[in-house]
């Protein structure tokens, strides 16, 4: 018998090449499910893991980048300040694909300011908030996304209303906002793949807005779609996201309708999932800065140090 050929992606890599070290998080934790989806999506899309940089802050979720993409450089920084580290690293090397993983404590409390400014700058970073409404590592305090009225083990109720990170990101100008539930494998995959195709902000949770199909740029499968029910949105790399209309379908390219859908859902005590908003036109921060195409980190000395003539010119002006 000949040995069975190993299954590989378009880069010739196995799914094993996309895994990390063994998780130390609790069995059955949603964080592990998300890590699994990340592995699958990067593998299936054939993203070169050596071109990816992983970033995280502090907390259970922030530990998870050690458990996926072991061939990628990773940086587990300080609490709430992952956006700054990621921003600096992506400025140093704009060719990196940035993948940030954070939690509700890391983003909605200590890191809300950096999150806001990251969104404002439109940094091309996939920013996954693994939101469970609770501080896990310190064993069970409320986070700023916990529902009002929810109870601690001690019975103490949460008497403050939650932040909706998706609504906030929309308000601050995010260009891709989606929410899913760690248990919804299909939807979460489509969302992560879309995010990979364009750089995005995401969050996990419930109530689907639409059915999602992600078609990578290297595949062209034509699917029979009932007229008027499906919308296709093209990503920067040519991949397409197909949104299949559900009952409450709305236009995800219209920020106002996204915000009002979220408002309405909040009133009805529902959590919407799916792609809330996509904007493929707004320039990223790297474009705004008019930076060189090659990574700043590896520019040769000839491009870093101006000539002796330049120094003379400056000295002459100061005489």
């Amino acid at each position: 018998m000949t040995p069975q050929a190993k299954k590989v992606n378009r880069l010739g890599l196995e799914v094993l090449n996309y895994r990390g070290s063994k998780t130390t998080l609790c069995a059955g934790c949603g964080h592990n499910a998300i890590s699994e989806r990340i592995v699958e999506c990067f593998y299936e899309l054939g993203v070169d893991p050596m071109g990816v940089a992983k970033f995280s802050g502090i907390g259970c979720s922030s530990k998870s980048p050690a458990y996926f993409l072991g061939l990628s450089h990773g940086f587990n920084g300080v609490h709430g300040r992952m956006p700054a580290i990621a921003t600096g690293a992506l400025l140093a090397n704009r060719t990196l694909m940035g993948l940030g993983v954070t939690g509700d404590g890391d983003t909605a409390s200590i890191g809300i300011g950096q999150f806001m400014h990251l969104v404002r700058r439109n940094m091309p970073l996939i920013y996954i908030i693994e939101d469970n409404g609770v501080y896990g590592l310190t064993k069970g305090q409320f986070s700023a996304t916990a529902d009002v009225g929810s109870k601690l083990k001690t019975g103490a109720p949460n008497d403050l209303p939650p932040f909706d990170c998706c609504a906030l990101a929309l308000k601050w100008g995010a260009t891709f906002v989606a929410r899913s539930f760690s248990g919804d494998k299909k939807q979460l995959q489509a969302i992560i793949k879309t995010a990979i195709a364009r750089g995005a902000y995401m969050k996990e949770h419930e109530e689907p807005l639409q059915e999602l199909d992600f078609v990578p740029f290297f595949e062209d499968i034509s699917v029979e779609i009932p007229e008027g029910e499906v919308r296709e949105i093209e990503m920067h790399d040519g991949s397409r996201l197909r949104l299949r209309k559900l009952d409450r379908y709305y236009d995800p390219t219209d920020r106002l309708s996204a915000l009002s859908a979220l408002e309405e859902a909040e009133k009805n005590h529902e959590v919407l999932t799916g792609v809330l908003y996509v904007n493929t036109a707004k320039p990223t921060f790297l474009e705004v800065l008019n930076m060189a195409e090659e990574p700043l980190a590896t520019l040769p000395e000839s491009k870093l140090r101006p000539s002796p003539a330049a120094l003379n010119e400056i000295m002459e002006e100061l005489r």
Binding site: A84, A89, L91, A92, A297
Partner: peptide
């Protein structure tokens, strides 16, 4: 400083 550290890490 976070950006400077991130950039230094990435080789800038």
């Amino acid at each position: 400083i976070g950006m400077a550290i991130g950039a230094g890490w990435a080789g800038a």
